[in-house]
Design a binder for these strands. Sequence first.
DNA 1: ACTGAATATGCTGGAAGGGGAATATTCCCT
DNA 2: AGGGAATATTCCCCTTCCAGCATATTCAGT
Lengths: 132, 132
Amino acid sequence: MELITLYKCLADEARLRILNLLRLGPLCGCHFVEALAMDQVKISKQLNYMKRHGVLAAEREANWMIYRLADPEHPVLKVNLLAMRTLPSSGVPFAADEGRLAEIKQRISAAMEEGCQPLAPSAVAASCCATH
Amino acid sequence: MELITLYKCLADEARLRILNLLRLGPLCGCHFVEALAMDQVKISKQLNYMKRHGVLAAEREANWMIYRLADPEHPVLKVNLLAMRTLPSSGVPFAADEGRLAEIKQRISAAMEEGCQPLAPSAVAASCCATH
DNA sequence: ACTGAATATGCTGGAAGGGGAATATTCCCT
DNA sequence: AGGGAATATTCCCCTTCCAGCATATTCAGT
């Protein structure tokens, strides 16, 4: 992955917030729409942008499209996903996003314990259980 | 400094190479032109771009314009200036730039020891001596 | 005032990026 | 086949950005 390309992906608020959530594990599109409270079209475009540039990987499971970091161990990406959240006033609402995502995962986890139909693709559901 | 703004500055090869050299201390424009082997106009524009966005600071000394990192301790900037150079194939010729800069500094240092007229503004000259 | 070195600005064209709105596609279920 | 949920695409407009070229500005020395 080209270094410049990676920085271009980081240089947009929507993409930055998406990457911040993917730090915590794979997710499907509808979760971004809810956790970031953003237009679906906008999310889809930015997801595609990063997939096109090799930063994200995607795979389909039924109705859902599961997105993940193409290379979670990439040194520069990794270091940024950690450092950017520590900035006191970055102007990006990372904490709020993470809070809403936690609620979503909790909801999925609760539904699974009750034996309901899956509310999320298996990869995402697995990460929900892992956090409980 | 806005986080997104900083990433935009990193998302261009010329700017990235400029920042990499500034990591080693303040420099004036003509040194970039030589060390990066790039057009003077291009360099000047990118320096101005980063100054306009608060990433660089500049001050004039005689004919020279001395550029420096506005906030060398900025966590995200700092971490990137370190991490990006460690990528085996980033596609950016950091090492070659640093090599040419070392030659320039050596030349300045040698001229100073012979008591010649200064070949560089004081802030730059000081950093040349510091490395010997 | 003139020169040369260092630096900055102006202009044009083209490419890429992002917002908004509407629409299309893919898939599962019945 | 039809419907609904999730996701993707298209089109238009606007702004930013970058390259290339020419030119302008600033400053020290003479």
